[in-house]
Computed example of a mutant assay.
Amino acid sequence: MTRGSTLPAHRLSDLPDRVAIPTLPEQPRTPPPASTALEGFNGAPEAEAHRTLLGCLRSPRWAHRLAAHRPYPTLDALLAASDEAAYDLTAGDLTEALAAESQPSLPEDAYGAAHTALGAAHAAYEARFGHTFIICLDGVPPDETLDYVLEAIRSRLTNDPEEERVVTAEELRRLARQRLSESL
């Protein structure tokens, strides 16, 4: 047994073979944790952080706000700030972000009629609301994607434009959150 560097071990008189100051087994040294993606994001130059954020949501106002408030202590703190900034987007900000969005894709093994039905639903949606239908598919099993998207488009086609603007803003917020989580 090794002894501490400053105090010798002492035997207790009433307990033979016991040490008054027990020595601890040597603990393996662990290397310092590697730099995390969040640390990289926090320390990145402003332009690089801005580009990363624009890859999650094409709103310069949202991206600027998040980049300007770095560093974030945790991913949860960044996601909370993302949500807050997304809630503050104006109608113009939403329009700008929507212009860069693409339609959700179908699974590769979807049959031809599904592509036709989805194409018609997307066309009806765009004619009614003037922008691409977007939806966050986080948590939707891949084999349920087609039915989920078709049901959502049909349901949302019944919204009035203001209701749909609110739903669309929420979907953009969820998409930004999902993309941030995946990128960091």
Rank of each mutant, 00 (worst) to 15 (best):
T2A: 12
R3Q: 11
R3W: 00
S5W: 11
A9E: 11
L12A: 05
S13V: 02
S13Y: 06
L15H: 06
P16V: 03
R18V: 12
R18S: 08
V19E: 09
A20S: 13
P22K: 09
L24E: 14
P25R: 15
E26K: 13
Q27K: 15
P28K: 12
R29V: 13
P32W: 00
P32A: 11
P33S: 07
A34V: 15
E39D: 01
G40F: 01
F41C: 07
F41H: 00
N42T: 03
A49F: 03
R51D: 08
R51G: 05
T52L: 06
T52N: 06
L53V: 05
L53G: 03
L54K: 02
L57A: 04
P60R: 14
H64A: 15
R65W: 07
R65N: 13
P71L: 05
Y72S: 03
Y72F: 13
T74W: 09
D76S: 14
E84F: 08
A86D: 08
A86S: 15
L89M: 15
L89E: 00
T90W: 01
A91F: 05
G92N: 15
G92S: 14
G92R: 15
G92H: 12
L98M: 06
L98C: 01
Q103T: 14
E108S: 08
G112F: 10
A117K: 08
L118P: 01
G119R: 09
G119W: 03
G119P: 02
A121T: 05
H122R: 10
E126R: 14
R128W: 01
F129I: 02
H131V: 00
T132P: 01
T132I: 08
C136D: 07
L137E: 04
L137F: 12
D138Y: 11
G139F: 12
P141M: 07
P141D: 05
P142I: 03
D143S: 07
D143I: 01
E144C: 13
L146Q: 08
Y148E: 02
V149N: 00
V149S: 08
E151D: 15
A152W: 02
A152C: 13
I153S: 10
R154M: 03
S155A: 14
E162D: 14
E163G: 07
R165N: 06
V166R: 08
A169Q: 10
A169W: 04
E170K: 14
L175W: 09
L175Q: 10
L175C: 15
A176L: 06
Q178W: 02
Q178S: 12
E182W: 01
E182P: 00
L184E: 04
